[in-house]
Simulated scan of single mutants.
Amino acid sequence: MMRGKMSFWCWLLGWTIATALAGAPAWAQQKNGFDLSQALIPASQILHGGPPRDGIPAIDQPRFADPEDARLWRDEDLMLTLDREGRSVAYPIGILNWHEIVNHRHGGSGVLITFCPLCGTGIAFDPVVDGRYLTFGVSGLLYNSDLLMYDRQTESLWSQIEGRAVAGPLAGTHLERLPVRHERWRDWQQRVGDRGRVLSTDTGYHRNYRRSPYGDYDHSERVFFPVSHTSRKYHPKTWVLGWEHNGEAKAWPFPELAKHGDTLRDRVGGRPVVVHYDAGVPDATLTTETGEPIAAIRAFWFAWYTFHPDTDIFEVP
């Protein structure tokens, strides 16, 4: 959103924050048409992100291409990748920056791909709740600077990082997270070979998928929206891997993993886990001791911390 001088988008974000914090009483009950009267989080902390509901359009009818036909992407471009049922699918971050949600249904099942550019969080979910397949859109609202998505069947609001409905008829319900990786385009192709498909740029929308609308945000210390808890222990945009189990949360900051090495054995909530660090991306993934993937979250430090202020932190002695 920032390139050199203040852009229109930065001005709009500033106006949004000021207006939300000013808070007319009616806003505590409804924002962007969503009923917040019985929200599980403070309604005053649910902020307008700037665009209206569906102003950032989710991809509802995704098309996929063979990697050799996807000529837009360069070797170092980042993909959010999901391995499932013997196949692997790459969702380019260049596309997710503009759409944030992909409703990918195949057969009787499907997957919900979500990405919050403000928190750096790419998270996949199983969209089936109590036997009902849900489809999701971008609400235009934020909580702790994170994407609040909504399901179109009940109009419940869902916190992306929590994977939990925080307002509406499904409030308190959780989505099951699915393990994903962040990989460079070249590395993913080499790993999966002919088992891979990539989300096509034929999305039905005209966007420059080679340009991020967020400028240098990933490296700036600036966080556009207020958050509940802050820590200056690391740069706000330091990458961490985070996971919570049995009420215990832990973060593995990438600078600490870089000092430690590629593989780390650890324990969270009484469960042994193995952290695998790839400095080339950079990325980190979590598995069981037997190698089964665990759905941990790659996030900016500020984002993990604000949702988990009591988190343990791995540090090299």
Score class of each variant (00 low, 15 high):
C116R: 01
D130E: 13
D126M: 10
H106W: 13
R132S: 15
C119T: 15
P117Q: 10
C116V: 12
R105I: 14
F125V: 00
V129N: 11
V102W: 06
V128H: 12
S109E: 14
V129P: 04
S109F: 11
G122V: 09
V129I: 15
G110L: 05
C119S: 14
R105T: 15
G122C: 09
H106E: 15
V129F: 08
S109A: 13
V129S: 01
G122Y: 05
C119E: 06
L112D: 01
H99T: 05
F125H: 06
G122A: 13
G120F: 07
C116G: 13
N103Y: 05
T114E: 08
V129L: 13
R105Q: 14
Y133C: 09
L118V: 03
V111Q: 01
G131Y: 01
V129Q: 07
C119K: 10
V102H: 11
C116L: 03
G108Q: 12
R132F: 13
F115Q: 01
D126N: 14
F125G: 04
P127C: 10
G107I: 02
R105H: 12
Y133T: 14
L112M: 03
V128W: 08
V102P: 04
P127A: 05
P127N: 03
G122Q: 01
G108W: 01
I123M: 11
C119F: 04
H99E: 00
D126A: 12
H106F: 13
V102Y: 05
L112T: 06
C119Q: 07
P117W: 08
A124Q: 00
G107P: 01
V128A: 13
G110D: 00
E100H: 06
T121I: 11
F115M: 02
G122E: 03
E100L: 09
G110M: 03
G110Q: 10
G107S: 04
H106I: 14
V128N: 09
A124W: 01
I113Q: 04
Y133H: 15
S109L: 11
I123V: 15
P127Y: 03
F125M: 03
F125L: 07
L118S: 05
T114R: 07
V111Y: 05
D126L: 08
G120A: 07
G122M: 09
D130V: 09
N103A: 09
R105S: 14
I123L: 12
D126S: 11
A124C: 11
D126C: 10
N103C: 06
I113M: 08
S109Y: 12
G131M: 03
G108M: 04
F125K: 05
G131F: 03
I123A: 09
I113W: 03
D130H: 13
T121P: 00
N103T: 00
Y133P: 06
N103F: 02
P117R: 01
G108I: 07
C116K: 04
P127W: 08
I101H: 08
R132Y: 09
V111E: 07
G120H: 06
A124G: 02
H99L: 06
P117S: 10
L112Q: 06
G108L: 01
S109D: 12
V102C: 11
D126H: 05
G131E: 01
I113D: 01
I101E: 00
Y133D: 12
N103H: 10
F125T: 03
T114N: 08
H106T: 14
G131A: 03
F115P: 02
I101Y: 07
H104V: 07
I123E: 02
T121S: 15
V128G: 05
E100T: 12
V129R: 02
F115H: 15
A124P: 02
V102M: 09
L118C: 04
R132G: 04
T121H: 11
G131K: 01
